[in-house]
Amino acid sequence: MSPNLLLADESTGSRLRRNLLAIAGTLLLVTTYTVLVITQPTDLTGGLGQGVALATFAAYLLSALLLLAAVLQDLPVSTLTLIPVALALNILLGQFVGSVMVPLYLDSMGTVLVGFLAGRRAGAATGVLGTLIWSLFAPTVLPFAAGAALIGFLAGTAARFGAVRRVYLAPIAGLVSGVLVGAISAPVAAFVFGGTSGVGTGAVVTVFRSMGDSLLSAVTKQALLSDPGDKAIVFLIAALLVYALPNRMSQSYEFVRRYRVLGRRGGERD
């Protein structure tokens, strides 16, 4: 019999290795973030500044890659086919928003959609992979891979605990996720790029800086102004898209059935 017709051989060793990779990735991310927030290096362009920029870039990217390595081999085929579509939707819907001049990003729509339908591990993997592929067109997004993974992870967690069962819960979950993602991504913007890459967001940071805030504090405040609103809308639209799916399709995802993600909207009722 072909080995592909057999169930995957899941040994305790490989599961342990994946858990260790996930723990290492999370620890690296949290440690880097904590060290940067506590020390807040003021030198941006001197020897120390160059070192901090490189170390932050490397630590955030490495933690994202470790998290990807931890989850990638666990994903079922139905999720693997969903991820490329989600990545393409991230890019296309991001451009769509740009073309209609609405001041939102919506570039994480696909990631949130995967989190809602396939769970937090799939969401995190979509976030990292999306950033890696998007970096082929915009290399500056590369160190934000960990933040993108967090969006997918939080979307999956929110769906697991019932945030998609009621339409008003989705934007609340998005708001909370936006605060966490904004806070985690701020050190990258501050210490790797010395601020933000957009003129509009740069103007907001300038206002906070002129009021006497440190660079990290100003960038964090700017992120806390933009990200929660954006994520609230993304979570709401992703939830509405999931409601619009035919029952047959949404219930084909094991995560949706197992955690009754859609509640009474889904086919399986208690």
């Binding site: 500056t140 010395g194 890459s197 740069g202 206002v207 800086r209 002129s210």
Partner: peptide, 18 residues
């Protein structure tokens, strides 16, 4: 846009002044 943003953040505003 990145240059423009850097100019605003570091060139225009620093240490509580504009």
């Amino acid at each position: 846009p990145t240059f423009a943003s850097q100019l605003m953040i570091h060139g225009l505003a620093s240490n509580g002044s504009f």
